[in-house]
Amino acid sequence: MALKYSYYPGCTLKNKAKSLDITARKCASALGFELEEIENWQCCGGVYPLGSDEIATKLSSVRALDYAKSKSQKLVTLCSACHHVIKRVNDDMKNVPDTRMRANNYLKLDTPYCGETQVLHYLEVLRDEIGFDNIAKAVKNPLKGVKIGAYYGCMLLRPSKIMEFDNPENPQIMEDFIKALGAQSVIFPYRNECCGGHVALKSPESAQKLSGKVTRSAEGFGADMLITACPLCLYNLNKNSQSDIPVYYFTELLAKALGIDSEE
């Protein structure tokens, strides 16, 4: 029986980042797991609501989490921002009594939601549930000789106490992923620095400065291309960094290595 997960795609994967969604689903079936899209999921809001008194802005995440709980499935995300928001809201529901009480009072679920669902990023599924060694075995077209820089950005890593994704200062999950595809990973200093994020809308000049540092750092250390899990990082690195270094979603390269056609 195939592993089944509740899948939260988020807005961007239905629109500007369709290829992230499509390649992830195709690779999942090739690797023996299934992403079952959560019914009627709502936008996570893109940024985690930092205010300790905010409830309404967290409810869409709680609904998705409760849906996964009702199916006794783990919840899988792809977009770094969705992952960040849902993982942190889940932590609030588990560990912050005031948020838990007020969100549950509002939602009036049959059984209160108290952070039971496990939230996994797709990369964590590859690492912890499938195993990079098994992925290496499934690779049909190893990306031999390609030098790939893993761009982590902020949202997957920080705050590490809550995200529990990897070492926030010296992560290695994406490098291990790159090696499993038969390529060479390039470690560069700005791989966990900010691309400019939401500031790009009103202050593109700030995003240009920040994303430019990322691409120059990657190029300086010899990367041929970058991979990311985040549509906004991809946008800033492509549009604002003033560099021509190609940037791909990590699932696009996974599909290529597995010999999967990434068209719709």
Binding site: C11, K16, G45, G46, H198, L201, P231, L232, Y235
Partner: peptide, 11 residues
């Protein structure tokens, strides 16, 4: 422009 940028900025 990704949808993510718009929703984040509005937030």
């Amino acid at each position: 422009t990704p949808q993510q940028l718009l929703v984040s900025a509005f937030r």
